[in-house]
Simulated assay, not measured.
Amino acid sequence: MRIAITGAQGQLGQAVIAALADQHDLAPLGHGQLELADPATADQIAATGADVVIHAAAYTNVDGCARDPLLAYRVNGLGTRYVALGCRRINAALVYISTNEVFAGDGRRPYFEDDPTGPINPYGQSKLAGEQAVRALWPRHFIVRVAWLFGGERNFVRTVLRLATNPPAGGLRMVADEIGSPTYAPDVAAGLARLITTDYYGTYHFVNDGICSRYEFAAEILRRAGIDTSLHPIRLRDFQRDSTPPPYTPLANVAGAALGITFRPWQEALDAYLDRLRRQALLP
Protein backbone atom coordinates (compact mmCIF):
# COMPACT_ATOMS: atom_id res chain seq x y z
CA MET A 1 0.00 0.00 0.00
CA ARG A 2 0.94 3.61 -0.43
CA ILE A 3 0.77 5.29 2.98
CA ALA A 4 1.09 9.00 3.68
CA ILE A 5 2.22 9.95 7.20
CA THR A 6 1.76 13.44 8.59
CA GLY A 7 3.97 14.44 11.49
CA ALA A 8 6.64 12.18 10.04
CA GLN A 9 9.37 13.81 12.13
CA GLY A 10 7.58 13.38 15.47
CA GLN A 11 8.12 10.52 17.87
CA LEU A 12 5.08 8.56 16.68
CA GLY A 13 5.66 9.45 13.03
CA GLN A 14 9.21 8.13 13.18
CA ALA A 15 8.03 4.94 14.86
CA VAL A 16 5.36 4.45 12.19
CA ILE A 17 7.91 4.89 9.43
CA ALA A 18 10.18 2.30 11.06
CA ALA A 19 7.28 -0.15 11.39
CA LEU A 20 5.97 0.23 7.83
CA ALA A 21 8.97 1.00 5.64
CA ASP A 22 9.81 -2.60 4.72
CA GLN A 23 6.37 -3.52 3.41
CA HIS A 24 4.78 -0.32 2.12
CA ASP A 25 5.42 2.66 -0.14
CA LEU A 26 5.63 5.61 2.25
CA ALA A 27 5.02 9.31 1.68
CA PRO A 28 6.30 11.05 4.84
CA LEU A 29 5.03 14.60 5.35
CA GLY A 30 6.87 16.75 7.88
CA HIS A 31 6.16 20.25 9.12
CA GLY A 32 8.15 21.77 6.27
CA GLN A 33 5.89 20.10 3.71
CA LEU A 34 2.49 20.52 5.35
CA GLU A 35 0.95 23.52 7.11
CA LEU A 36 -2.12 21.98 8.71
CA ALA A 37 -3.97 25.25 9.34
CA ASP A 38 -3.90 26.01 5.59
CA PRO A 39 -6.84 24.74 3.50
CA ALA A 40 -4.27 23.72 0.86
CA THR A 41 -3.59 20.73 3.16
CA ALA A 42 -6.54 18.97 1.49
CA ASP A 43 -4.87 19.36 -1.92
CA GLN A 44 -1.52 18.16 -0.59
CA ILE A 45 -3.06 15.07 0.98
CA ALA A 46 -4.94 14.26 -2.22
CA ALA A 47 -1.74 14.71 -4.25
CA THR A 48 -0.05 11.87 -2.36
CA GLY A 49 -2.34 9.33 -4.04
CA ALA A 50 -2.23 7.35 -0.80
CA ASP A 51 -4.33 4.31 0.02
CA VAL A 52 -4.02 5.16 3.72
CA VAL A 53 -3.21 8.42 5.50
CA ILE A 54 -1.89 8.23 9.06
CA HIS A 55 -2.48 11.67 10.52
CA ALA A 56 -0.06 11.91 13.44
CA ALA A 57 0.75 15.61 13.12
CA ALA A 58 -0.69 17.92 15.78
CA TYR A 59 0.02 20.88 17.98
CA THR A 60 0.80 18.85 21.11
CA ASN A 61 2.22 21.55 23.40
CA VAL A 62 -0.65 21.44 25.88
CA ASP A 63 0.45 24.58 27.71
CA GLY A 64 0.91 26.36 24.39
CA CYS A 65 -2.62 25.32 23.45
CA ALA A 66 -3.89 26.83 26.71
CA ARG A 67 -2.13 30.10 25.91
CA ASP A 68 -3.44 30.18 22.32
CA PRO A 69 -6.66 28.15 21.97
CA LEU A 70 -7.33 29.60 18.52
CA LEU A 71 -4.05 28.25 17.18
CA ALA A 72 -4.78 24.88 18.76
CA TYR A 73 -8.18 24.76 17.07
CA ARG A 74 -6.81 25.87 13.69
CA VAL A 75 -4.10 23.19 13.69
CA ASN A 76 -5.78 20.26 15.46
CA GLY A 77 -9.41 20.93 14.52
CA LEU A 78 -9.46 22.63 11.13
CA GLY A 79 -6.21 20.97 10.07
CA THR A 80 -7.72 17.55 10.64
CA ARG A 81 -10.81 18.62 8.68
CA TYR A 82 -8.58 19.41 5.70
CA VAL A 83 -6.81 16.05 6.02
CA ALA A 84 -10.17 14.27 6.05
CA LEU A 85 -11.32 16.17 2.96
CA GLY A 86 -8.11 15.20 1.17
CA CYS A 87 -8.68 11.56 2.06
CA ARG A 88 -12.24 11.76 0.77
CA ARG A 89 -11.05 13.03 -2.60
CA ILE A 90 -8.81 9.99 -3.16
CA ASN A 91 -10.85 7.41 -1.21
CA ALA A 92 -7.99 6.88 1.25
CA ALA A 93 -8.57 5.35 4.67
CA LEU A 94 -7.72 7.83 7.41
CA VAL A 95 -6.03 7.09 10.73
CA TYR A 96 -6.41 10.05 13.06
CA ILE A 97 -4.21 10.00 16.16
CA SER A 98 -6.12 11.47 19.09
CA THR A 99 -5.55 11.67 22.83
CA ASN A 100 -6.71 10.67 26.29
CA GLU A 101 -7.27 14.37 26.96
CA VAL A 102 -10.60 14.32 25.10
CA PHE A 103 -11.96 12.94 28.40
CA ALA A 104 -12.77 14.97 31.52
CA GLY A 105 -10.78 12.71 33.84
CA ASP A 106 -13.48 12.49 36.50
CA GLY A 107 -14.12 8.75 36.22
CA ARG A 108 -13.06 5.87 38.40
CA ARG A 109 -12.26 3.25 35.77
CA PRO A 110 -10.32 3.30 32.50
CA TYR A 111 -12.27 4.91 29.67
CA PHE A 112 -13.84 2.73 26.98
CA GLU A 113 -13.75 3.84 23.35
CA ASP A 114 -17.40 4.96 23.30
CA ASP A 115 -17.51 6.66 26.70
CA PRO A 116 -18.73 10.28 26.63
CA THR A 117 -15.99 12.83 26.03
CA GLY A 118 -15.67 16.14 27.86
CA PRO A 119 -12.26 17.78 27.55
CA ILE A 120 -11.34 20.34 30.19
CA ASN A 121 -8.49 22.11 28.39
CA PRO A 122 -7.96 23.69 24.94
CA TYR A 123 -5.66 20.91 23.77
CA GLY A 124 -8.29 18.24 24.45
CA GLN A 125 -11.00 20.44 22.95
CA SER A 126 -9.01 20.94 19.76
CA LYS A 127 -8.28 17.22 19.42
CA LEU A 128 -11.96 16.42 19.99
CA ALA A 129 -12.81 18.91 17.23
CA GLY A 130 -10.53 16.83 15.00
CA GLU A 131 -12.37 13.65 15.96
CA GLN A 132 -15.71 15.29 15.19
CA ALA A 133 -14.50 16.46 11.78
CA VAL A 134 -13.26 12.99 10.88
CA ARG A 135 -16.54 11.35 11.88
CA ALA A 136 -18.61 13.92 10.01
CA LEU A 137 -16.63 13.98 6.77
CA TRP A 138 -15.25 10.53 6.03
CA PRO A 139 -16.58 7.11 7.10
CA ARG A 140 -13.39 5.20 6.19
CA HIS A 141 -11.61 6.25 9.37
CA PHE A 142 -9.82 4.90 12.40
CA ILE A 143 -9.65 7.26 15.37
CA VAL A 144 -6.81 6.00 17.56
CA ARG A 145 -6.38 7.59 20.97
CA VAL A 146 -2.98 7.33 22.64
CA ALA A 147 -1.74 8.62 25.99
CA TRP A 148 1.48 9.64 27.73
CA LEU A 149 3.49 8.76 24.65
CA PHE A 150 7.21 8.06 24.92
CA GLY A 151 9.80 6.73 22.53
CA GLY A 152 11.33 9.75 20.82
CA GLU A 153 13.66 12.56 21.84
CA ARG A 154 11.17 14.64 23.85
CA ASN A 155 8.88 12.89 26.30
CA PHE A 156 8.29 12.33 30.02
CA VAL A 157 10.90 9.56 30.29
CA ARG A 158 13.65 11.73 28.82
CA THR A 159 12.57 14.65 31.02
CA VAL A 160 12.83 12.56 34.19
CA LEU A 161 16.25 11.25 33.15
CA ARG A 162 17.46 14.75 32.38
CA LEU A 163 16.23 16.16 35.69
CA ALA A 164 17.83 13.27 37.56
CA THR A 165 21.28 14.16 36.23
CA ASN A 166 21.14 17.50 38.02
CA PRO A 167 18.27 17.30 40.50
CA PRO A 168 17.01 20.44 42.22
CA ALA A 169 17.64 20.98 45.90
CA GLY A 170 15.40 18.65 47.86
CA GLY A 171 15.02 16.18 45.00
CA LEU A 172 12.54 15.66 42.19
CA ARG A 173 8.83 16.32 42.66
CA MET A 174 6.21 14.53 40.57
CA VAL A 175 2.42 14.63 40.58
CA ALA A 176 0.82 11.68 42.35
CA ASP A 177 -2.84 12.37 41.54
CA GLU A 178 -2.67 12.49 37.73
CA ILE A 179 -3.33 8.94 36.54
CA GLY A 180 -2.92 7.61 33.01
CA SER A 181 -1.59 5.00 30.59
CA PRO A 182 2.10 5.26 29.63
CA THR A 183 2.44 4.27 25.98
CA TYR A 184 5.48 3.33 23.88
CA ALA A 185 5.40 4.81 20.38
CA PRO A 186 6.85 1.72 18.61
CA ASP A 187 4.14 -0.44 20.21
CA VAL A 188 1.46 1.91 18.87
CA ALA A 189 3.10 1.82 15.45
CA ALA A 190 3.04 -1.99 15.45
CA GLY A 191 -0.65 -1.88 16.33
CA LEU A 192 -1.36 0.58 13.53
CA ALA A 193 0.45 -1.66 11.05
CA ARG A 194 -2.07 -4.37 11.85
CA LEU A 195 -5.11 -2.10 12.09
CA ILE A 196 -4.74 -0.59 8.61
CA THR A 197 -4.94 -4.04 7.02
CA THR A 198 -8.54 -4.31 8.27
CA ASP A 199 -11.74 -2.47 7.42
CA TYR A 200 -12.94 -2.39 11.02
CA TYR A 201 -13.34 1.36 11.06
CA GLY A 202 -14.10 3.19 14.30
CA THR A 203 -12.49 4.40 17.53
CA TYR A 204 -9.63 2.64 19.29
CA HIS A 205 -7.50 3.05 22.40
CA PHE A 206 -3.90 1.99 21.71
CA VAL A 207 -2.03 2.16 25.02
CA ASN A 208 0.27 -0.16 26.88
CA ASP A 209 -1.37 -2.31 29.51
CA GLY A 210 -1.60 -0.97 33.06
CA ILE A 211 -2.07 2.40 34.72
CA CYS A 212 -0.04 4.59 37.05
CA SER A 213 0.43 8.11 38.33
CA ARG A 214 3.10 10.47 37.05
CA TYR A 215 4.90 9.92 40.35
CA GLU A 216 4.77 6.12 39.98
CA PHE A 217 5.91 6.40 36.36
CA ALA A 218 8.88 8.55 37.38
CA ALA A 219 9.79 6.16 40.20
CA GLU A 220 9.89 3.21 37.76
CA ILE A 221 11.96 5.21 35.28
CA LEU A 222 14.56 5.97 37.94
CA ARG A 223 14.54 2.44 39.36
CA ARG A 224 14.87 0.70 36.00
CA ALA A 225 17.51 3.16 34.85
CA GLY A 226 19.53 2.48 38.02
CA ILE A 227 19.43 6.09 39.17
CA ASP A 228 19.35 6.80 42.89
CA THR A 229 17.87 10.21 43.57
CA SER A 230 15.16 11.45 45.92
CA LEU A 231 11.64 11.68 44.49
CA HIS A 232 8.69 13.30 46.27
CA PRO A 233 4.96 13.19 45.46
CA ILE A 234 3.01 16.40 44.99
CA ARG A 235 -0.58 17.13 44.01
CA LEU A 236 -1.84 18.57 40.74
CA ARG A 237 -2.92 21.75 42.48
CA ASP A 238 0.67 22.28 43.62
CA PHE A 239 2.08 22.13 40.08
CA GLN A 240 1.45 25.43 38.40
CA ARG A 241 1.06 25.36 34.63
CA ASP A 242 -1.05 27.03 31.94
CA SER A 243 -3.02 23.91 31.04
CA THR A 244 -5.28 21.91 33.33
CA PRO A 245 -4.62 18.19 32.79
CA PRO A 246 -7.48 15.77 33.35
CA PRO A 247 -6.67 13.91 36.58
CA TYR A 248 -7.77 10.36 35.68
CA THR A 249 -7.61 9.25 32.05
CA PRO A 250 -6.39 5.64 31.73
CA LEU A 251 -7.65 4.16 28.48
CA ALA A 252 -9.03 0.65 28.02
CA ASN A 253 -8.09 -1.14 24.80
CA VAL A 254 -11.36 -2.98 24.16
CA ALA A 255 -11.96 -2.57 20.41
CA GLY A 256 -8.36 -3.33 19.45
CA ALA A 257 -8.18 -6.37 21.70
CA ALA A 258 -11.30 -7.74 19.99
CA LEU A 259 -9.24 -7.78 16.77
CA GLY A 260 -6.29 -9.42 18.52
CA ILE A 261 -4.30 -6.17 18.82
CA THR A 262 -3.03 -6.08 22.37
CA PHE A 263 -0.18 -4.30 24.12
CA ARG A 264 2.40 -5.41 26.67
CA PRO A 265 2.56 -3.86 30.15
CA TRP A 266 3.97 -0.36 30.19
CA GLN A 267 6.81 -1.48 32.47
CA GLU A 268 8.07 -3.90 29.79
CA ALA A 269 7.77 -1.18 27.16
CA LEU A 270 9.74 1.17 29.41
CA ASP A 271 12.51 -1.43 29.70
CA ALA A 272 12.63 -1.69 25.91
CA TYR A 273 12.97 2.08 25.58
CA LEU A 274 15.68 2.31 28.24
CA ASP A 275 17.57 -0.51 26.51
CA ARG A 276 17.39 1.45 23.29
CA LEU A 277 18.76 4.55 25.00
CA ARG A 278 21.64 2.46 26.37
CA ARG A 279 22.46 1.14 22.90
CA GLN A 280 22.52 4.75 21.70
CA ALA A 281 24.87 5.63 24.57
CA LEU A 282 22.25 8.05 25.92
CA LEU A 283 21.98 6.17 29.21
CA PRO A 284 24.72 4.42 31.20
Rank of each mutant, 00 (worst) to 15 (best):
D106H: 08
D38L: 15
G64F: 04
G10W: 01
G260S: 13
Y200Q: 15
I3G: 01
R140Q: 06
A46L: 09
A190E: 12
L34S: 14
L251W: 10
Q267G: 13
P69L: 07
D187Y: 13
L222S: 05
L270V: 07
P233I: 05
D106G: 15
S213P: 12
V62M: 05
L172Q: 15
L71M: 04
F217D: 03
L251D: 09
E220C: 10
V188E: 12
W138R: 01
V146S: 14
V83P: 08
V254K: 10
L20F: 06
G118C: 03
D271Y: 00
A47E: 11
D228N: 13
R81K: 14
N61W: 11
L172F: 09
D177E: 02
Q280V: 00
D275M: 03
T203E: 07
G130P: 08
A19N: 13
L78D: 12
D275H: 12
F142M: 03
I179N: 05
V75S: 04
C212S: 12
A104H: 03
G7Y: 02
V144E: 01
V134S: 00
V83L: 08
A27N: 13
R88Q: 13
M174A: 14
R158L: 01
A272G: 06
N91M: 07
A40T: 09
A66R: 02
R74F: 00
A281K: 15
A189K: 10
G180Y: 08
R135Y: 08
T229A: 00
D187G: 14
D68H: 11
N76H: 04
S98M: 12
L274Q: 00
V134R: 08
P28L: 09
N253R: 05
L20S: 02
G105I: 01
A225T: 07
V62P: 00
A4E: 06
R154T: 15
P119H: 05
I143C: 05
L161F: 02
A219T: 07
A252L: 14
Q23T: 14
R135E: 11
I211V: 14
R162N: 12
P122F: 01
